[in-house]
Nucleic acid binder design. Structure first.
Length: 431
RNA sequence: GGAGAGGUGGCCGAGUGGUCGAAGGCGUCCGCCUGCUAAGCGGAUGUAGGGUCAAAAGCCCUACCCAGGGUUCAAAUCCCUGCCUCUCCGCCA
């Protein structure tokens, strides 16, 4: 949710910011509704004040054994007015709340203005694309040929956009999860504050999804369990960010950094016909997620660090990638600034998103009331949240199959994963 | 799923329908004191929205004692429903 005062102070600026995201917002309607709500609140408060003072007057009289019938009937009248004022306030409040929840975050000033993904800006490339003296196969063919990846049986069990890994494929998935978590929790050296690993619920309450921004706007993207009013998580961002919902933490504990491995569930409602083959776009996929809670002053540098933490996984795996900065038109709903990390996919001869690292500023923390007590003056302030994939497991697995494939149809296991693969250095055909 | 007990501030914990935003303690902050530290002493200390003010402080108003309803002139307090926690039983990986 946006900072109301900030919007009221500079509605033109806000309108420009929305337009840069490709959104036309009727600011007059917005400000009108807000003002109407505000006057209803003031009216209701004034009536409550009147009732409260009359009621305590009754209390005083009763204690002195005086008659209070006259005031009591006066209060009854006031109470009728309160009921009306309350209805009006409630209606307007619901409309206002619904309206504010529909607005996306405002882009940071450093975000390049652009219409869509074609105007994203490449920040850097790391590692050269491997050259093959044969035509590289797509990962689903490699996986099928090796006998470790099966979409047909998955479809029989669950329908389209599901997959089954078997044998070394399943082991490779497990290896990637362990490897990534080990790096982030710093069982390997070099990071000053390691991430704390969390294992979290996969089913969450609607409130949790409202806090992170998936609800109310993106309901159709979510799997929903109606009998219990619970949703399957589309990303670990939801349970991990909500870990601190409604809490006030002390500044001395910051920044708080968490990582979590979870499966993720997405309906991919708007993606019909896109990436129909392979592991790129599945209803269920695995991901290791990184989440930061930061003081506002340090969240922008935190975004750089977070992005590098995620990219560090690709560097260690020896996979070529690039980092791009999303333009205003391509920015996610809750994000103020996003770097996407894209890995090279030889069969497609292009980079594909494997991580998305964002600073949500106070957009999620205002919705979820996640705050901290400032050391300096003991005041309570909203935190900033950030998150990024570190990384998507399925896409990483696909990238390894494709980038490390050989002319013989085998796959070289990245060196850092060998210990996690029981010493295996190559994936070969299995039955 | 059944029975019972509970949900109060950063934490613990009192609270008779009106003077309760709520005793007391812990923690935290500011002083004092003692070579230093600890201890001790004194004071301050909820959140949000609004008003007053040039602004800050201060003062004032409204809301919040799990959530939502209800009773009442008046609810932390009484009633109902839901959620959550704990104990026992049942079931279960």
């Amino acid at each position: 949710m946006l900072d109301r005062n900030r919007i009221l102070k500079d509605p033109e600026g806000a309108e420009r910011a929305f337009r840069s995201r490709g959104l036309s917002v009727d600011m007059t309607a917005l400000l009108g509704l807000d003002a109407e709500w505000f006057s209803a609140v003031r009216e209701w408060e004034a009536l409550r004040e009147k009732r409260n003072s009359l009621s305590s007057e009754i209390g005083r009289k009763k204690r002195q054994n005086e008659n209070s019938d006259e005031i009591e009937s006066e209060v009854r009248l006031v109470n009728q007015a309160i009921t009306q004022a309350e209805d009006r306030k409630r209606t307007l409040e619901a409309r206002r709340e619904a309206m504010w929840l529909e607005f996306p975050n405002l882009p940071h000033e450093s975000v390049p203005v652009g219409r869509d993904e074609s105007e994203n800006r490449e920040v850097r490339r790391v590692g050269g694309a491997p050259s093959f003296d044969f035509t590289p196969k797509p990962h689903w063919e490699i996986g099928a040929d090796l006998g470790i990846l099966d979409f047909d049986r998955a479809a029989r069990i669950s329908g389209a956009r599901f997959s089954i890994l078997s044998g070394a494929g399943a082991r490779l998935e497990r290896a990637l999860i362990s490897f990534m978590l080990d790096i982030h929790t710093n069982r390997t050296p070099e990071k000053s504050v390691p991430y704390r690993e969390l294992s979290v619920p996969y089913l969450v309450l609607p409130e949790s999804l409202t806090a992170t921004g998936q609800l109310p706007k993106f309901r159709e993207e979510l799997f929903y369990v109606e009998a219990d009013d619970l949703y399957l998580i589309p990303t670990a961002e939801v349970p991990v960010t909500n870990y601190l919902r409604g809490e006030i933490v002390d500044e001395s504990t910051l920044p708080l950094k968490f990582c979590a491995y979870t499966s993720c569930f997405r309906r991919e409602a708007g993606a019909a016909g896109k990436d129909t083959r392979g592991l790129i776009r599945q209803h269920q996929f695995d991901k290791v997620e990184l989440v930061w809670f930061s003081v506002p002053e340090r969240s922008w540098e935190a975004l750089e660090t977070l992005t590098e933490d995620a990219a560090g996984i690709l560097r260690r795996l020896g996979l070529p990638y690039r980092v791009i900065e999303l333009c205003t038109g391509d920015l996610g709903f809750s994000s103020a600034k996003t770097y996407d990390i894209e890995v090279w996919m030889p069969s497609q001869e292009r980079y594909r998103e494997i991580s998305s690292c964002s600073n949500f500023t106070d957009f999620q923390t205002r919705r979820g009331q996640i705050r901290y007590r400032r050391l300096e003056d003991r005041k309570v302030q909203l935190l900033h949240t950030l998150n990024g994939s570190g990384l998507a497991i399925g896409r990483t697995l696909a990238a390894i199959l494709e980038n490390c494939q050989t002319a013989e149809g085998t796959v070289r296991v990245p060196e850092v994963l060998v210990p996690y693969m029981g010493g295996a250095t190559t994936l070969t055909r299995e039955g």
